[in-house]
Amino acid sequence: MRRITVNLLIDYAPDHPYHRASVAALHEAAAKTDIPIELRIVPTDTIDAVENLTGASSAVFIGPGTPYRRPEAANEVIRAARERGVPLVAT
């Protein structure tokens, strides 16, 4: 099956259990569905062009751990995913 890109918006802290669980859950879903994924961890203060996060064959995961460093950038990604029909989950 075609590989998809999952952009995980999260101000990632490797020792945070909920952050680690978010990454693990995506890999567990990839194993279950046999869908190969490229997982990109995207800290909110590194978001530039939302088009790069909402392209074809991509998905967006708005991860846990607010407050985000750049909440407005996260909102722009949410808007782009909504308008472009890109699959998104926010937890």
Partner: peptide, 13 residues
């Protein structure tokens, strides 16, 4: 795997 995440990947695929 949780169905929310399998659903996300299937939708993207």
């Amino acid at each position: 795997a949780h169905p929310v995440f399998t659903g996300l990947l299937l939708a993207a695929a």
